[in-house]
Nucleic acid binder design. Structure first.
Length: 661
DNA sequence: AGAGTGGGCCTTTTT
DNA sequence: GGCCCACTCT
């Protein structure tokens, strides 16, 4: 059934305001102006993927598609916001009705409307990773198993198993069989844990990240009226970073597109770096089979990097056996000064000193700090650089590590609001209970059992030591649940801070003042929302790059050097890029090197890292690394940094005399 | 019994 | 910095 649809002609000569020919190259133009139907765009790094998607949205609207009939799925909410903003600048239309965001945020939006159809309340709260893990461990205990038993998976591993099962739509049994064969003997126990885990989330009216996708898909599958409604609504679905979609996300798109068949999937298999989350770039491969009549467009012109950087990138990725061949070429002139540098250093401290010194020189050459990024495989690889930059008072912005929302004080305050919005939120209740003196896990659980058994909140009897603050909580709870404050998150936060949390913070945290300022940030952010549920959902779904409240407020206003994991640098670019800690076992990570697929994914990650650079690329590795407790360990240079003669400039920096002599 | 504290050990990537 | 474990305090 092919539906001749959309691109309805408003007149025989539509008023076209945008000069697509002049704004796009031939490849991009072909994608942007493609006829209705499924389109697969294979877009190399730096080839103007965002530009293509942006113009496609504008093109659709200029040709008469209503904004609310467009769904734009992106990897971060920020990416979606920026694209839509650019569409808004191209067109006079009101584009606020376009549906845009991450899979998780779109799923959240659907579920807020229809959660009742699944037996959830539309006021469900969203668990972050820590909460989810706590719940998994609690479920393990509830099955009667001993959490100290070394043969059982730890909380983090349980989460991996549950998450992989959800994202690949496989059973626990097959995930364990395929990915965790050493747990084969206890698979029935793991299934039992999972059932309790799942049921408890439902009882508590909470969802974890995976549940958002699972239940959104279930909603569409099980409810024909709802499915039809959205299938008809979304005439055009555009998906960015398609190579990083997993099974459940692909199914979500396929189902939504089953009526209009108009999906534009944009991706690059060479940049698929989320397989541990179930991402499968074969979604790209099988797209034409799932959407018969797919038009394929390749965009292979790179506008970002110098030819020297691109040569290195192409060489690096060529070592992978599993990839679609492509020929990414640069538009920039060759420049002998832009040859990438490979620098060998004694240890991580010297590496940090080298980077800082080089950045100071670049500054003297007129480079702005916000045009420089330091990229690494794992958060803790950046430690020495952070210390050195702090010592030299160089402003930097950390795009990794703890997210704002994950800090204890932010989570504490949010828990008060969560419990007010959703009194079935067990984790929020227990978190607050645990703040009270003399109340630990056991006591909190007893109190929760009473509450779940029908006791009123005010009638609970905490231990004597906790009586005063507990009473304060009961009053605060009533206050923020009352009509005049309901939904007004910013004012609710203020009440919580004044009535309870400030006193707690003073005794608990040495840096009380700076945490109080964080909470001020949180209040300011909360003012953007009309309902507390929306504020809490946004907080849980926000990524570091989305630009909500920040951890590094004291540096926020001035230009900063960007420190980031490679994963979080996806889609971004800088004039100057340092890729650091290029040692075998660190990048590629030890655990990834055990399988061919693992190593190839690390290589794609390396490819993503080097293709972030426009003008200058520095690859650095230390020869030794201070390990956590013992003496320094020798490191082999990463298998990714052996290049043919002449591809890089190689430097070896000799040890400086120790600072104290 | 359960809460709180301090030392040892290890660190992938995230919505 | 975080997690786990063992130990001490209430």
């Amino acid at each position: 059934m092919s539906v001749e649809y959309v691109l309805k002609k408003t007149s025989s000569h539509p008023v076209v305001r945008i000069d697509y020919r002049a704004s796009l190259n031939d490849e991009q133009y072909a994608a942007v102006t493609a006829k209705p139907g499924p389109i697969l765009v294979i877009a190399g790094a730096g080839s103007g993927k965002t530009r293509t998607l942006t113009y496609r949205v504008a093109y659709l609207i200029e040709n008469g598609v209503e904004p609310e009939n467009i769904l734009l799925l992106t990897f971060t909410n920020k990416a979606s916001r920026e694209m839509l903003e650019r569409v808004g600048n191209l067109l006079p239309h009101d584009i606020s009705r376009i549906w845009g965001g991450t899979f998780h945020s779109v799923a959240n939006r659907l579920l807020r409307r229809h959660a009742n159809a699944l037996g959830f309340g539309s006021d469900f709260t969203i668990l972050d990773r820590d909460d989810t893990q706590d719940l998994a461990v609690a479920a393990l205990k509830a099955t009667g198993l001993d959490p100290k038993d070394k043969s059982l998976p730890k909380g983090a591993v349980l989460l991996e198993i549950f998450g992989l099962a959800a994202n690949t739509e496989k059973s626990i049994t097959s995930v364990v069989g395929e990915n965790y064969p050493y747990f084969h003997g206890i698979v029935t126990q793991i299934e039992a844990i999972h059932r309790i885990f799942r049921d408890r989330k439902r009882a508590d009216n909470v969802m974890d990240y995976d549940d958002l996708l699972v239940y959104a898909l279930q909603l569409l599958r099980d409810h024909e009226d709802i499915r039809k409604f959205y299938q008809e609504q979304f005439q055009h679905i555009l998906v960015d970073e398609y190579q990083d979609t997993n099974k459940i996300q692909a199914d979500f798109i396929d189902l939504l597109a089953a009526f209009h068949h108009q999906v534009m999937a944009v991706g690059d298999d060479a940049q698929s770096i989320y397989s541990w989350r179930g991402a499968n770039f074969e979604n790209v491969l099988t797209f034409p089979q799932r959407f018969p009549g797919t038009r394929e467009v390749r965009i292979e012109t790179n506008y970002r990097s110098t030819p020297e950087i691109l040569t290195l990138a192409n060489y690096a990725i060529a070592a992978n056996t599993r990839q679609f061949p492509k020929n990414l070429h640069s538009t920039r002139p060759a420049d002998k000064f832009s040859k990438p540098a490979l620098i060998c250093l004694q240890d991580a401290n010297q590496q940090a000193a080298f980077i800082c010194q080089r950045i100071e020189e670049l500054q003297e050459e007129g480079i702005e700090l916000n045009e420089i990024a330091i990229l690494y495989r794992a958060h803790f690889h950046s430690m020495e650089v952070q210390m050195e930059m702090t010592r030299r008072q160089m402003p930097f912005e950390l795009l990794s590590g703890l997210r704002f929302f994950e800090q204890a004080h932010v989570k504490d305050v949010a828990a008060f609001l969560k419990f007010a919005v959703n009194p079935r939120d067990e984790l929020a209740f227990k978190r607050i209970s645990g703040l009270m003196p003399g109340v630990g896990e056991r006591t909190a659980d007893k109190l929760w059992q009473k509450l779940a058994g029908g006791a009123t909140f005010a009638s609970l009897e905490p231990p004597a030591r906790a009586a005063a603050p507990w009473k304060q909580w009961v009053e605060t709870h009533a206050q923020i649940s009352a009509d005049d404050l309901r939904g007004r998150a910013s004012e609710q936060i203020l009440v919580v801070i004044d009535a309870i949390y400030q006193d707690y913070m003073k005794t608990k945290f040495p840096n009380f003042q700076s945490r109080l300022e964080d909470l001020g940030q949180l209040r300011a952010f909360a003012q953007n929302f009309e309902r507390t549920e929306d504020f809490l959902a946004q907080l849980a779904l926000m990524t570091n790059v989305d630009g909500g409240p920040r951890q590094d407020r004291h540096l926020a206003s001035q230009p900063c050097i960007r420190l980031s994991t490679v994963h979080q640098a996806k889609g971004l670019e800088w004039k100057i890029v340092f890729v650091i800690m290029l040692c075998d076992g660190l990048f590629p990570a030890q655990r990834s090197m055990e399988t061919l697929e693992g190593e190839e994914e690390e290589r794609r990650l390396f490819y993503v890292a080097v293709t972030r650079a426009c003008d200058e690329l520095y690859l650095t590795y230390p020869m030794t690394r201070a390990s956590a407790s013992f003496e320094d360990r020798w490191q082999e240079p990463s298998r990714f940094v052996s290049f043919p003669r002449g591809m890089v400039n190689e430097w070896k920096i000799k040890a400086e005399p120790p600072a104290w002599s």
